[in-house]
Simulated scan of single mutants.
Amino acid sequence: MNSLFRKDLSDFKPYEAEVNNCKVILNANESFINIEKQLEDEIISVIKDIEINRYPDPTGEKLRKIYGSYSGTDKEKIMIGNGSDELISIICNTFVNSGDKIVKLNPDFSMYKIYGVLHGAEVLEYDLKEDFTLDIDDFIDFINYEKPKVVFVSVPNNPTGGIVKKEDILKLIKSVNSIVVIDEAYFEFYGNTVIDEIDNYDNLIILRTASKIGLAALRLGFLITNSTLLMELYKVKPPYNVNSITQEIGALIYENKQVIEDNISRILREKSSLQISLLSLSERINFKLYPSGTNFILIEIYEAKELYEYLKNNGVSVRFFGKGRLENCIRITVGNRDENRLLLEAINKFLGDR
């Protein structure tokens, strides 16, 4: 049987999502606000009207129109996906032949590499500087030397929270002969975007997600690009990739833009409070907080593994990386007031037990 397996995947390590039994879950960059409760009656109403015996709209016409209004672009420039993960796979399947190169930053979202490898690409990683900032000119030189088919950059970066200025993103796009994918998964928290530039560059693709605004369970992502690239991408997209329930709930949520904006403001207030508290704690022990344009905070601490295990044993789940550039880093999703309090109390106790 082993002779039937792909030899190039013999040492491949799949992404392993953590099964979480902790009381306080701050490891996956989800929203702590249950938007379902805010719009419960409306959600029940749209679900009741779904004809579950029928296939979903293959292109999500209604959802694309509403998201186009929400995001400030035309529905004809949007593709919907089963999470942005599927859209990353579609991009690779559209443009990458076996042996072609893909470039991603290190560190950055791990799924770029995973889908690249699964599609037979040679995945090259360009290291961010020691402070996790990007030398844009050197990065451009690296890309032009390696000549990859596709370049992936998350802005803001996951997992560091760092940003790349818009002028640097545009410099990148116009300076390389590659498809440049700008993943704006955390756009709502950062506020800046290059979505208004999609018709100005023939090699630009933008990714967005509903997961960070409170719809992680729906698995809903958006791809925005020009008509030429979109036509190629539709050759690869499965016909019924986003189910009807996700489409209808997604359309309802994005129609309620004020609810989303209010929730984002609430999360950012909690983030500010958490940052202040963590900065105060950092004075007791030498750990570093990195600037963040997202709904999470990355800290670097020598005792990262010990702190992670201590928090988990006390019912608080955070993201521990434990290898490479992130060996001593912990990523903390912003929780609600009570969750952040429990987190801080546990960190305080960890420091006191030293």
Rank of each mutant, 00 (worst) to 15 (best):
F139P: 01
R354N: 08
A121W: 00
N295G: 06
I347A: 01
S89Y: 10
I33H: 12
V46G: 08
Y302G: 02
T333I: 05
G161K: 05
I80L: 09
K149P: 01
R341E: 15
V242R: 00
Y240P: 07
I35G: 14
R266E: 15
G72D: 05
F95V: 01
P14A: 02
I198M: 06
N53Y: 14
L278N: 10
K349L: 11
N348D: 04
V181Q: 10
K174F: 10
S277L: 06
Y290M: 04
E248S: 07
I213V: 10
R354S: 07
I44C: 14
E327D: 12
T294H: 07
F12L: 06
D137K: 12
P148Q: 03
K237C: 09
V123Y: 05
L172V: 06
N348T: 07
G99N: 08
P156H: 12
Y234K: 14
Q38Y: 00
E309D: 14
N200S: 07
L326S: 12
K101Y: 09
K7F: 10
L63A: 08
Y234I: 01
S175Y: 06
I253N: 02
G352W: 00
V103A: 03
V180N: 07
N226C: 08
F142Y: 12
F32N: 01
N53A: 15
I163C: 11
I66A: 01
E184R: 15
Y310F: 13
K165Y: 10
